[in-house]
Design a protein around this nucleic acid. Structure first.
Lengths: 197, 197
DNA sequence: TCACGCCGCGAGCGATTGCTCGCTTTCAAC
DNA sequence: GTTGAAAGCGAGCAATCGCTCGCGGCGTGA
C-alpha cells in the first residue's frame, strides 16, 4: 500500500476499489481487469486508485487474499472445532465445510482457479493447504489407531490434496452423475480406505 | 489456420514458430509470449507468422494441444496395454506412466498448469481425463471383484482425479518428504483402499 | 474563518502489443 | 526461360494499458 487512508471517505474508496476489482473479475474475467476499468466500475479516477495501490497487481492481491483467507478461515475453524472428535464424522464435517466455503463464491473460484496467472494465488492456496495439512498430521500422529499409514506427514499430504482436488473440481464442474451427498460419501471411502489400507 | 503451407520451407517455418512458442513459454513465461517475440525467436518476421496463424492464441493452442496430446498418448497407451492385467500392478504401472509423461516436460507443465489463462488448456486436459476415465470405468464395470464401489463411473471419476492431482502436484512441487517410489505406494494404497472399502 | 494537508480528479504520456500491407524473393509448372 | 503463385519480409498503424502529474475541492484543527 502506497499510502494509508486516514479519513473515512478514502477508506470507503479503497473498499469500493477492492469490491469493483472482484466484480470485474467475476463479470468480465481477468482480461478485462485493467486499472482503468476497475477505477470506472468503482466510480473512481485512475489517479485516486494509484494513491493507495502501488500497481495493478496489488489490487488483485487483496481480492485473492481475501478470498483464500475466507476459505481457510472456514475450514480451519471447522477442523479446530472437531479436533477432539474421532473418525469418519470429523472427515465428513471438514469436507463439508470446505465444500460450503468453495460453493459460497463459485464464480470467483472459477476465475481464481482457471483464469488467473496464479503465482500469487498459488502462494495463498499453498498456505491454506499447509495450515490444514499440519492440523491433519498432528491429529494422525496423536491417534495411531485411526491410521495404518506409517508416515503421518505423507498421509496428511495425500489426504488434503485428494480431498481438496475433488472438492474444487466438483464445485467447478458440477458433474451430473455425483450428488453432493455422494461426493461426501466417496471422500469418506477414499480417506478411510486409504488410512486403514 | 489461415492458410495451409504447401511448400517444404513454409511447413518448416510453421514448425519453427511452434517450437519457438514453446521455447518462449518455458524460458520467459506467458507474459513474454508476444507475437513479435515468438517471431524473433523463430527467426521469422511477424508478417510471415500471420500468414499461417490467424492470431496469437492459435500458436498457443498448438503448443498446448501438442503437450496434452503427448501426455494422453502415453497414459492411454500404457493403460490400453494393461487392460487385460489385473489389480495393483496395473494401477502402479499406469500411475508410473503418467508420472513419467509429466516429468518429461516439467517446465512446460509448470507454465501450462500455473501461469496460463487456461481456458483452452482446460478443454484439452478435460479430454485427457475423460479418455482415461472411460477406460477405467469400463475396466471396473467388467471386473466387479476389483471394486466394492457401486457406481463404476463415479469410482473412475474419483480415482482419476485423485491420481492426476497427486501426480501433478508431486511433479510441480517436488516435496522433499515423498520419494517417487513412496508416491506410487501411496497412490496404490489410496486407490486400493478406496475401491475395496 | 482561515489555512494546511488529505483527498480526488482525469487528460494524457510513454510504452507495448497484436496485427497489416505493400513489397521483394523464391519456387515450380510449362 | 518465362510466368504466376506461394512464401517471406519488416516498418509501422491503431489501439490499449499501466501509470503520472498538475490542479482544484473538501475536511479538520486552531
Amino acid at each position: 500500500m502506497r499510502k494509508t487512508p486516514r479519513q473515512a471517505r478514502s477508506r470507503e474508496m479503497v473498499e469500493r476499489i477492492v469490491t469493483a476489482g472482484r466484480a470485474v473479475l467475476i463479470a468480465d474475467g481477468y482480461d478485462a481487469f485493467s486499472t482503468n476499468r476497475v477505477a470506472t466500475v468503482a466510480g473512481v479516477s485512475p489517479g485516486s486508485l494509484y494513491q493507495y495501490f502501488p500497481d495493478k497487481a496489488a489490487i488483485l492481491d487483496v481480492v485473492i487474499d481475501r478470498y483464500w483467507e475466507e476459505v481457510a478461515e472456514r475450514v480451519a475453524a471447522s477442523l479446530a472445532d472437531r479436533i477432539g472428535e474421532f473418525g469418519p464424522a470429523m472427515v465428513r464435517d471438514t469436507a463439508d465445510a470446505l465444500l460450503t466455503a468453495l460453493e459460497a463464491d463459485r464464480e470467483l473460484l472459477r476465475v481464481v482457479a482457471e483464469e488467473l496467472p496464479v503465482q500469487r494465488s498459488r502462494e495463498r492456496r499453498a498456505a491454506l493447504e499447509r495450515r490444514v495439512r499440519e492440523l491433519v498430521a498432528t491429529y494422525l500422529a496423536a491417534r495411531p489407531a485411526t491410521s495404518h499409514r506409517p508416515q503421518a506427514g505423507v498421509a496428511a499430504w495425500v489426504v488434503v490434496l485428494a480431498v481438496e482436488g475433488l472438492a474444487m473440481r466438483w464445485v467447478l464442474d458440477q458433474p451430473a452423475f455425483v450428488s453432493r451427498e455422494e461426493l461426501l460419501d466417496e471422500m469418506l471411502a477414499l480417506v478411510g480406505g486409504y488410512l486403514l489400507a
